[in-house]
Amino acid sequence: KKIKIKIKVYNPETKEVLELEIEVSEEEAEELAKKLAEELEKKGYKIEEVEI
């Protein structure tokens, strides 16, 4: 079964909002969402919402 992940991120420095969407297997979904959120935060983005 495929799971659709939508991530909306906001960069306070540039006032930019990015929306990302990807489909992955159920097993990958939670781990991938967690890794993406961590990487984006390292780059200065503030995570507003992660929906699985």
Rank of each mutant, 00 (worst) to 15 (best):
E38M: 10
Y10N: 10
K2S: 07
I5Q: 00
K34W: 09
I22F: 15
E27Q: 12
A29T: 05
E19C: 11
K43F: 07
E28K: 13
E27I: 07
E48P: 01
K42A: 06
K42Q: 03
N11M: 05
I22G: 03
E28S: 08
I47P: 11
K35L: 10
K1L: 09
G44P: 00
K35G: 06
I47T: 02
K35P: 00
G44H: 01
Y45I: 13
V17D: 05
E49T: 15
N11G: 03
E16W: 08
E41L: 05
K35W: 12
V24P: 02
Y10S: 13
K42L: 06
E30W: 14
E38C: 07
L18A: 05
K1E: 09
E38F: 07
K35S: 06
K4E: 03
E13T: 12
L32Q: 13
Y45Q: 08
K2Y: 10
E49H: 08
I22V: 14
L40M: 03
I3P: 03
L36K: 02
P12F: 06
K43S: 04
L40N: 00
I22Y: 11
E27M: 14
L36C: 03
E27V: 11
E48A: 06
L18C: 12
T14D: 07
T14P: 02
K1Y: 11
I3S: 15
E48W: 10
I3K: 15
E13M: 12
E48H: 07
K8P: 00
G44Y: 01
I22E: 09
Y10V: 12
K34A: 13
L18W: 08
E23R: 05
K35A: 05
Y10T: 11
K15E: 07
L20I: 15
V17Q: 11
S25Q: 09
E28Y: 09
A29G: 06
I47F: 01
V9R: 00
S25K: 08
E16T: 10
E49W: 12
E26A: 11
L36Q: 01
I47K: 00
Y45W: 10
P12A: 07
E30A: 10
L20D: 01
K43L: 09
K46Y: 12
K8D: 01
E23A: 09
E31I: 07
E21W: 13
S25A: 15
L18I: 11
I3V: 14
V24E: 13
K34S: 05
A37C: 12
I47E: 03
